[in-house]
Computed example of a mutant assay.
Amino acid sequence: MGQEDRPILVLDSGVGGLTVLREVRFKLPFERLVYVLDDAGFPYGGWEEGPLTDRLIALVGKQIDAHDPKAILIACNTAFTLAGEALRKAFPDRTFVGTVPAIKPAAERTRSGLVSVLATPGTVRRAYTRDLIANYAQHCHVRLVGSDRLAEMTEAHLRGETVSEAELKAETSACFLEESDGRRTDVVVLACTHYPFLTNRFREVAPWPVDWLDPAEAIARQLSRVVTNRSLGPSALPDIAVFTSGQAEPAARRLMAGFGLSVPG
């Protein structure tokens, strides 16, 4: 494989990483992309830490052997906050870019000092997340809100299934805090790459307007900084989506095609 055809690998448990892949295309328009959708392991939020780390190391190793990527983007907060360090140790010759909760920019942006982080339960539990708060948001009241269902609701939404307002309110209402002095939550960090697909729905059910902070553009910008061996023109090979289950339903194939990805086989 020529240098110009070595891809950037983007990995997530489901379709959430597409929100980041979309931004990567803007920043690095000539790079070939391989999107690895670990649908056989979805959702990551309910996994125990040890088995999920082992799964991610094995999966990334398999994809390195198959595609020899020039960079690996872990487009999943749950995966990277857990296994980012282990992946770098397992593959020290590879360039990794991760996805972590955008707590630092939220702390810089808030006026009220009340910030919520909407995430999977796995991301909420991570020491990594609490370290981000301690390092960058000591002057804020940061509320961690773990949703068991939103990632799966996002996938259902993208399949054209109905997701009700009541369901969305149940998963997001804890993000909104109002203090006795009149201060209200004004920034909600979307700490799962699935969630930006539902931002317009979140706005509809929110009790007041907030800044829904999507880190996808910042992640793509970081990737563009570390990819030094850039392609100078379009690759002769297509951008592809790899389903770890080996099965892609017609609706999933159509969704991938909408993001410019073909599904081999």
Rank of each mutant, 00 (worst) to 15 (best):
A119W: 02
N229S: 11
G16C: 06
L21A: 13
S164A: 07
L18Q: 06
G113M: 05
G14M: 12
A137P: 03
T193E: 07
V242L: 08
D38P: 07
G260L: 01
A206Y: 09
L255M: 13
N200Q: 14
D181K: 12
G260S: 03
L114N: 12
A191V: 10
R183S: 01
Y195S: 14
L21M: 12
G182A: 04
L232R: 13
I103E: 04
L144V: 08
L177Y: 14
S112C: 07
A119P: 01
D65L: 04
F30D: 09
S224G: 14
K104D: 00
R253Y: 00
L18A: 11
T53R: 15
I240Q: 10
R25A: 11
L33E: 01
G113P: 08
G146C: 08
G258K: 02
N77E: 10
G45K: 07
L213I: 00
W212K: 10
P264R: 11
Q222H: 13
P69L: 04
E152P: 01
I103K: 03
K89R: 15
M153D: 12
V226C: 05
D54M: 03
T110G: 02
D93E: 14
G160Q: 07
K27V: 13
V100C: 09
V10D: 06
S235Q: 04
V226G: 09
S164R: 11
I219V: 14
A216F: 08
R149T: 13
P264I: 00
G146E: 05
V36C: 15
A40F: 04
V34L: 07
E171S: 11
T81S: 15
P207K: 12
R253A: 08
A106I: 02
G233P: 00
S180C: 02
S116E: 09
H139P: 03
A107C: 03
T172I: 15
G98T: 12
A252Y: 12
V142K: 10
K89H: 09
T123D: 06
A137C: 07
G61F: 02
T120V: 08
Q247V: 15
P234R: 07
G182Q: 08
E249T: 11
D181S: 06
L33S: 00
N135M: 05
Y35D: 03
A236E: 01
G50C: 00
V145M: 10
A86W: 02
A75L: 09
V34D: 11
M1A: 14
S262A: 03
P215N: 07
P43W: 12
S235R: 06
N200D: 15
T19V: 10
W47K: 13
S116I: 12
K70W: 05
R126P: 04
L114Q: 08
L118C: 08
L59I: 02
P196K: 08
K70A: 01
R125Y: 06
L237C: 05
F96Q: 11
W212Q: 06
R149S: 14
L37Q: 12
L255D: 03
D214Q: 10
K62H: 10
L114R: 13
W208G: 05
D93G: 15
P69Y: 04
F26Q: 13
E167P: 00
F176N: 06
V205Q: 08
F176G: 04
T95M: 10
R130I: 01
T228A: 09
D93V: 00
V142S: 02
D68P: 00
K89Y: 01
L59N: 03
D93N: 12
Y44C: 07
G260P: 04
I133V: 15
G233I: 03
E217N: 06
A218C: 09
V263C: 09
A79W: 08
A170S: 13
I240M: 07
T95Y: 01
